[in-house]
Design a binder for these strands. Structure first.
Length: 465
DNA sequence: GTAGGGTTAG
């Protein structure tokens, strides 16, 4: 019976943790579960053992919320006997990747809470995290080779993606493709999708189409929606909207039964750009007729079209409504586009209100949201508001755009507010966004100020970080 | 949430 109670408690904690949307509240629950789960019980916690499930849930929640110190302390508490598994480790690694903390991602890969050995899956997660942190290809390669873990197709796909991310080197991606084949690792549809995207991005459309041919003729792998989407986007960028339209027809004829709406989004966006928005309605009807769900990207493409090409914010918000009515939850891209559109129209107060409302709408602002709002508010010369936005974004761990910083610094200098300048530089350093040029300005303008010594101290701190 | 594209920016 005692055993049953223990299981019962741990099970209910897991349910409660899963249900709690606020990560900080989830952590409190995790630390003193009885206070919330068993209202009638005495305050002292019954010593039931946490299941691995409970650790899984709380670690994932803390990772997603970037509450890393708390996450690490929970990880350190997991009893070795529970043997936490690699998927959880992967969540931790990729959370550090998303937070752009490469050193932390590397440390996590070797985290003592997770029993050795590591498989390619953990290695691939680490490589992908390093890629997200814009680690140079040679460093990613040496991480890979040094691990001693045999690479698989996924590893090579990530390495190829990293190669393409370097200043225009499709060649390195091709070399990796050759190496992959020499090692007897079969390329997948993802490999070819990566190559096609790489050639498209380099503007080498003929080569991209050649890859499409090779994959089907020599490897007997049919191009999927990803491949078509890349090609269609590249065609649209060259102004060949009608060719893209024809390619879409081929996709619908030849591709897997599951065609998603991504390629349609490209087309819709392109039609707005060339002033043919009237054709978008037909596109939507075509999708419905073919049983293709109108996805988030299509709505986002329309929102962007109304904001940027039409300057019609009412239509943009109407598209947002349609999106929600269509059972599609707006994401950060939807809101960021609207925030940008409002700012462009000089309506930064509305933009600011929308941003404040985002958490309530289930979509917390991201780095792009804050950058667009900050830039917009600075452009409008509303520097008191800019100070607020700046504080908030830095508090959330996001760095402003260089452009915004330049305008903001210019204003502070005109005001001659050395103290504000110092605190701003300090905050920039805290999000690793301090550039040499800012230092020079700061030092020249604050040199005769008593705060000078603090600046020097600041410099040392930032070198440490 | 191990990998590729499509919708925002840079």
């Amino acid at each position: 019976m005692r055993g049953a109670t223990a299981k019962f408690s741990s099970y209910h904690l897991a349910v409660a943790l899963r249900r709690e949307p606020d990560p900080a509240a989830a952590l409190r629950l995790f630390l003193s579960p009885t206070a919330a789960t068993v209202a009638s019980s005495p305050s002292s916690a019954p010593p039931f053992r946490y299941s691995l499930r409970c650790y899984d849930i709380i670690v994932c929640k803390l990772a997603a919320a970037r509450l890393f110190p708390a996450m690490e302390s929970v990880l350190a508490q997991i009893p070795a006997s529970l043997r936490p598994r690699e998927p959880l480790l992967c969540r931790v690694i990729s959370a550090y990747g998303r937070a752009r903390l490469p050193a932390a991602a590397r440390r996590a890969f070797a985290h003592p809470a997770f029993p050795a050995p590591r498989t390619a899956r953990a290695l691939n997660t680490l490589l992908h995290a390093l890629l997200a942190c814009r680690t140079p290809l040679p460093d990613i390669l040496s991480e890979c080779r040094g691990s001693g873990i045999p690479p698989d197709a996924c590893t090579y796909n990530i390495l190829m993606r990293a190669a393409v991310a370097e200043p225009g080197s499709v060649e390195n991606a091709c070399l990796l493709f050759d190496e992959m084949r020499q090692r007897g690792i079969a390329p997948t549809v993802v490999t070819f999708g990566t190559l096609v995207a790489a050639f498209c991005e380099a503007g080498r459309l003929e080569d991209a189409f050649k890859v499409k041919e090779v994959m089907s003729l020599q490897y007997n792998i049919r191009p999927n929606a990803h491949v078509y989407a890349s090609l269609m986007k590249a065609l649209c960028e060259k102004g060949k909207v009608d060719d893209a339209h024809r390619l879409k027809e081929e996709m619908v004829r030849n591709s897997e039964p599951l065609v998603d709406s991504g390629a349609y989004a490209t087309l819709a966006r392109a039609l707005f750009r060339v002033g043919r928005k009237g054709e978008v309605v037909g596109l939507l009807e075509e999708m419905k007729g073919r049983g293709i769900t109108v996805g988030r990207e299509v709505y986002n493409a329309m929102i962007a079209g109304f904001c940027e090409n039409e300057g019609d914010m009412d239509a943009a918000f109407a598209a947002l409504d349609d999106m929600q009515k269509g059972g599609c939850k707006p994401d950060a891209v939807s809101y960021n586009t609207l925030v940008g559109g409002l700012c462009k129209m000089g309506r930064w107060r509305d933009a600011s209100e929308l941003v404040e409302d985002m958490p309530r709408r289930g979509c917390p602002p991201d780095v792009v949201t804050y950058r667009r709002l900050f830039d917009g508010v600075c452009d409008a010369g509303a520097f008191d508001e800019a100070t607020k936005v700046f504080d908030e974004m830095v508090f959330q761990g996001f760095a402003p755009s260089k452009d915004g910083v330049r305008k903001f610094v210019g204003w502070i200098e005109r005001e001659g507010d050395a103290a504000l300048l110092e605190s701003m530089l300090c905050q920039l350093a805290s999000v690793n966004a301090l550039e040499a040029s800012e230092w020079e300005k700061a030092i020249s303008s604050v040199l005769h100020d008593p705060a000078e010594q603090n600046i020097v101290k600041l410099l040392d701190n930032s070198r440490l970080a």
